[in-house]
């Protein structure tokens, strides 16, 4: 499975900018660096699009452009929150107007599959189009669907993306659940100063998956695996060791681990245990200080991994040799765990 291109809109401007000088955020929220959408999307379409739709469509368009594709065989997206801003607008109007005089646009655009649908409308693409809404497995479910369809030779190319936004309202609600830091640690020191809670994040990351090499692929996706609610850290270790064995690998065969620490003490204990017990000899980097925590944050890790394999450069690390094999391990709230294995092309 080849990743012919990757593109995204995230709290970081670009992979090159991360290497030079990553964007740093104060408070407990990282927000996306957004381009001038008028340059990327038809103004007639843009007027109805909320922020997350613009982010998703722009990222997808850039990914297709980089891959040199006009029409993918499938468009598959994953999102946990969906189009929150439109949902909030629609629900607010429903309350304000006493369930009457509801404007249709916010309702139509509030569904979780709007991003995938808008990409299809833009391309006039009538091919397979699906959206997965599965909390911390949303992006992985989309990716696994694409992998399955390609392996079964139903399709040969798929545009796969993970999109999630945070709005002031959702940030306030999730803050009440204690998900985010109350101090002002900021993203630069997030992982160095352990505490309770993390920083909120968001992003729209898209990947061009193909069954054949293009000669200029970013990376090869060897395997993706998910597991749900492990009982303890020992079970997480077992899953990872078994995953490596199934791929005929040992930990020392991995050149780089990208792991999902988010600065929350209770969240990060498993990563610390794995660093000691599984990949103690392997260089490891974290990514959530760059994108924040959100259910489809693994999409950002995948975007980071393919750029590392494509360029040979690792943010915050000077590797002895160019990484050829990267393992990503991430979990969302100890419930949804995912492992990705990639190799350079």
């Amino acid at each position: 499975m080849y990743i012919q291109a990757a593109a995204g809109i995230s709290p970081q401007r670009s992979f090159e900018a991360i290497l030079m000088q990553p964007e740093c955020y104060t408070g407990n929220r990282l927000t996306c660096c957004e381009p001038d959408y008028a340059q990327l999307i038809d103004p007639r379409m843009i007027r109805r699009m909320s922020r997350i739709i613009k982010m998703g469509v722009a990222a997808a368009k850039e990914c297709l452009q980089k891959a040199g594709w006009e029409m993918p065989d499938a468009i598959i997206t994953g999102t946990a929150y969906g189009c929150l801003a439109d949902t909030e607008l629609f629900l607010s109007k429903m309350v304000e107007n006493k369930e009457e005089l509801l404007t249709p646009t916010a309702f139509i655009q509030s569904t979780h599959n709007t991003v995938g649908a808008q990409i299809a409308l833009l391309l006039k693409c009538h091919n397979y189009n699906n959206t997965f809404v599965h909390r911390g497995f949303s992006f992985e479910s989309a990716l696994l669907d694409a992998v399955t369809l390609i392996k079964e030779e139903e399709i040969s190319t798929a545009l796969v993306g993970g999109v999630d936004e945070i709005t002031p309202v959702s940030h306030a609600i999730l803050s009440r659940f204690g998900l985010y830091r109350k101090d002002d640690t900021g993203s630069a020191a997030l992982l160095d100063v352990p505490g309770k809670g993390t920083m909120a994040g968001e992003g729209a990351l898209f990947f061009a998956l193909s069954d054949h090499p293009s000669g200029n692929d970013y990376a090869k996706l060897d395997n993706v695996y998910t597991f749900y609610k492990p009982a303890d850290i020992a079970e997480v270790k077992d899953h990872i060791v078994s995953f490596l064995q199934r791929n005929e690998l040992q930990a020392q065969d991995i050149d780089l681990v990208i792991s999902g620490e988010n600065g929350d003490v209770s969240n990060d204990a498993v990563y610390t245990a794995l660093k000691i017990g599984v990949w103690n000899t392997v260089p490891a980097v974290s990514f959530k200080q760059l994108c924040g925590e959100y259910p489809t944050a693994a999409g950002f890790a995948l975007w980071l991994a393919v750029h590392i394999l494509h360029t040979g450069k690792v943010p915050g690390l000077t590797p002895a040799t160019r990484p050829r094999r990267v393992l990503i391990y991430n979990h969302y709230q100890h419930i949804h765990h995912s492992i990705y294995l990639l190799t350079a092309c």
Binding site: E100, L101, T103, P104, T105
Partner: peptide, 17 residues
């Protein structure tokens, strides 16, 4: 002006509101 069917629904709401 290039409006479409969704805009028609919005105009109906505008008349009511």
């Amino acid at each position: 002006l290039g409006l479409d069917s969704i805009d028609a629904l919005e105009l109906i709401v505008l008349l009511q509101q």
